[in-house]
Design a protein around this nucleic acid. Sequence first.
DNA 1: GCTTCATGTTTACAAACGTAATCGTTTCAC
DNA 2: GTGAAACGATTACGTTTGTAAACATGAAGC
Lengths: 130, 130
Amino acid sequence: MARKSDDSPERISDAEHAIMEALWDHDGAASAQEIYDTVGTARDWSLATVKTLLSRLVTKQAIATQPDGRRFLYSPVIARADYVGGESRRLVDKLFGGRAASLVAHLAESEALSVDDLTEIEALLKELKQ
Amino acid sequence: MARKSDDSPERISDAEHAIMEALWDHDGAASAQEIYDTVGTARDWSLATVKTLLSRLVTKQAIATQPDGRRFLYSPVIARADYVGGESRRLVDKLFGGRAASLVAHLAESEALSVDDLTEIEALLKELKQ
DNA sequence: GCTTCATGTTTACAAACGTAATCGTTTCAC
DNA sequence: GTGAAACGATTACGTTTGTAAACATGAAGC
């Protein structure tokens, strides 16, 4: 049976990402209006803009729609953890030759990590290795 | 005395970033041809494309030119460490609410880090904290 | 001196993005 | 049943990006 072109996980733009965050945040499917009420007003976008972004996300298959009366409810298709993982990997590949440890080293050296952070991470690592 | 618009550190695109990497890699200033010889051929870009990207980077003030006979030599204005730091911060802000430790936690939990990585990071942290 | 090659500059053009206005249709309040 | 409101769909339009071709100019060989 032939694979049906569901390949490349289309890239999500910054503006689109803001919409995704709202959807991930929202418990269950949300209407365009609801999304507008949170992200739209916060970022000072018009309702029309929010709708455009939702459409593009549907096209990119990042979110799905389910009819609700004469409107749609939107919900994320991809999990936030997956998205975050993908983006993190992209960065690591692009800037650190794929070595995540290099990223951590950089964050630490550039004092992007506080002493508290370091302690927290140490504890985390210990737990993960145990 | 009025500040003279050297503000926002213009965003560098993916293609432009490849050029930057070549420049950072290159010891000292490089000519367009030299950049083409490395990145261009590797990414299968025409010399014209490389020149366009170099021009855009000059406009964005990410690189500087110095005349060398009837041509230019290009060199990075921004240090790689700064760029890397900025991009890393952007990601952390966008996806982890600004908490770098969360990024590390995510990498660890999503097994983006091998046991060796974990060990390496642990050693690194110990050193940084001491 | 004329041709050719190297090099920067200008122009091109499609796709993606940010940001929306307009259109067509349905529904709800009168 | 008529007009306004709510929605999704379509169209719009400027900017950025990827990818380059065309152009202008100066140097170098013959």
